[in-house]
Structure formats: structure tokens, C-alpha cells
């Protein structure tokens, strides 16, 4: 097992808990609204942003955050204006972001920068610092507050957007807010889980919760809990077997999801569901 200095251990643990909490909280919306591929899109936007940061000599993480959030903010109005499914717009943005990333990397002299840009895609526990923790705390707090304060509007929209609009809910505003939170969550979780794997942390815990409960309230509570547990277990596995933390977290959360499918009370016939 890898032995880490105490401060690094605490920072990494807190980072894991907060990343698990924020990713799997926003996952509740992403899964229900069929925005699963948004994770791919955001992570590639982050990659392009990191490459751009390196090109103009600023922190690649800053570039990654700006590009992810800009993508999120662009995605909503574009899909609304063009009357396109979000997934169609995501597909379009996904390819254009990868193209940008290659162009930016190609413009940087030498190969050293490529490694730095790629580290955004893999993620590393050693990259987490106090500033990142502060951002994660801020994000988790704001997102939970948003979720609690607008719970009834959000659930009405998640049930059926048109009906929510018909009841006097400004669904466009909430849709854009959700996309913004997805972009922000992906950006600040990049260092820990990595851009390529962050969407799994968004989707897996929520998908697990969906297997277990029929009540959205319970799903909303269970998803962050499963997300935090996945991150902590992944963190331990990563230390124990010297594996990349992002990959370990994703494997753990995927295993939990696989077990939830096997033992889902929703799939039992003739028996009263355990968690109805």
C-alpha cells in the first residue's frame, strides 16, 4: 500500500468525498434528462481548454474550467434556439472540441506540453491542492443549496418539462442552470478523476440509485451517498494496489452499479420491493 504524507492523505480524502458528492448530485439531473453524453462533451472541452491554456502560457486547469463552463453555457441556448435534442448538440460540440484540442497541441512547440494537457484527461490525486478543495466545497455548497431551494421546480421539470412549463415554471432558466452546474462540476473534478472518467462518476451512482428506488426523493439522497462511497472505496483501492485513482473510482462505481442491476428490487416479480 502507498503511504502518503498526512496532509496529502487528508486533502485527497476530502477531495474524493466532495467530488463524489458533487458529481453524483448533478448526476441525478444528467441521467433523468438524458444528458449522459454531456460528460464526454465537457471532458473533451476541458481537454481543449487545457491545451489552449498551455498554448497561451496560463494554468491548463484554468483553461479547462473556462472551456467546460463555456461549453455548458453554449449548449443550452444552442439546443433551445436550434430546437435540437441536447444529445445532437453535444455530439456536434464533442467533435469540435477534440478538433480544437488537436489544433492547439499542434501549435505548441515541443512535446512537453502534451503530457501536461493529457494529465487533465487522466487525473491524479497528487494534483489536488487547497485551492481545488475550496472550489469543491464551494461547488458542493452552492449546488446543494440550489437543489434544496428549487427542489419543487426541478422535480416538476424532471418529471415532464412541458407540464412544468404549463404550471408556470421557467424551465429554460433551470435547464441552463443545470448545464452550468454540470460544466462546473466536471471542471473542478478533473484533477481527481480525470476528464475521460468524470462522466462515469456523474452517471454510475445515480444509475445505481435509479435501480433501487421508485421515489425520486430517495434517489436524490441515495445518489450522493453512493457517489461518496464509490470515491472513498476507489481511493482505498487505488492506494492498496497502486492504481490511478480515477480508474479505481470508476471501476468501483461500475461494480456497485452492476450489483444494483443484479439485486434491483425493481426487477423482482411477485415480491414486494424492498425500497418501494
Amino acid at each position: 500500500m502507498i503511504e502518503l504524507p498526512l496532509i496529502l492523505l487528508i486533502t485527497a480524502l476530502l477531495g474524493s468525498i466532495l467530488a463524489g458528492l458533487s458529481c453524483s448530485t448533478i448526476g441525478v439531473f444528467v441521467v433523468r434528462m438524458n444528458l449522459v453524453s454531456i460528460g464526454y462533451c465537457m471532458s473533451h472541452a476541458a481537454f481543449a481548454g487545457a491545451a489552449f491554456g498551455l498554448l497561451i502560457n496560463v494554468d491548463p486547469m484554468f483553461g479547462a474550467i473556462v472551456f467546460s463552463i463555456a461549453t455548458a453555457l453554449f449548449l443550452g441556448p444552442l439546443s433551445e434556439k436550434a430546437k435540437l435534442e441536447s444529445n445532437v448538440v453535444i455530439g456536434f460540440l464533442f467533435s469540435i472540441m477534440i478538433a480544437f484540442a488537436f489544433i492547439f497541441l499542434n501549435m505548441i512547440p515541443g512535446n512537453a506540453a502534451t503530457g501536461a494537457a493529457l494529465s487533465i484527461l487522466w487525473g491524479s490525486i497528487f494534483m489536488i491542492n487547497l485551492n481545488d478543495l475550496f472550489l469543491l466545497v464551494l461547488l458542493s455548497f452552492v449546488m446543494l443549496l440550489f437543489f434544496i431551494l428549487f427542489y419543487k421546480e426541478l422535480t416538476a421539470m424532471l418529471f415532464h418539462r412541458k407540464l412544468a412549463e404549463a404550471s408556470g415554471v421557467n424551465t429554460k432558466m433551470f435547464f441552463f442552470a443545470i448545464l452550468f452546474f454540470v460544466g462546473f462540476t466536471v471542471s473542478v473534478s478533473l484533477k481527481l478523476v480525470g476528464g475521460l472518467l468524470v462522466f462515469a462518476l456523474i452517471v454510475n451512482p445515480t444509475s445505481t440509485a435509479y435501480q433501487l428506488f421508485f421515489d425520486f426523493k430517495k434517489i436524490s439522497l441515495a445518489s450522493p451517498f453512493i457517489g461518496v462511497v464509490s470515491c472513498l472505496l476507489g481511493f482505498l483501492v487505488s492506494l492498496e494496489w497502486n492504481l490511478p485513482i480515477g480508474a479505481a473510482i470508476v471501476v468501483v462505481s461500475s461494480l456497485i452499479f452492476a450489483f444494483s442491476i443484479l439485486f434491483s428490487p425493481k426487477r423482482k416479480k411477485g415480491k414486494k420491493p424492498l425500497f418501494s
Binding site: 433523468r32 404550471s167 435509479y210 421515489d215 425520486f216
Partner: peptide, 29 residues
Amino acid sequence: IQNFEIDSLTPFLSKDVVMMGRTGRIGLL
């Protein structure tokens, strides 16, 4: 609404869906 199709795994309880009708009436915050 007409012809509302719903997935059998939709995770909302009947009472919560009925309450959603009041969302606009109750108001923000």
C-alpha cells in the same frame, strides 16, 4: 395534456406528481 406516455420506471410517486401542479402557485423559494 393529451397522450402522455410514461416509462414504467419513472421514479415519481403519484402524490408528488399531483403536488407538481401547485409548483407555480406556491412560487419560488
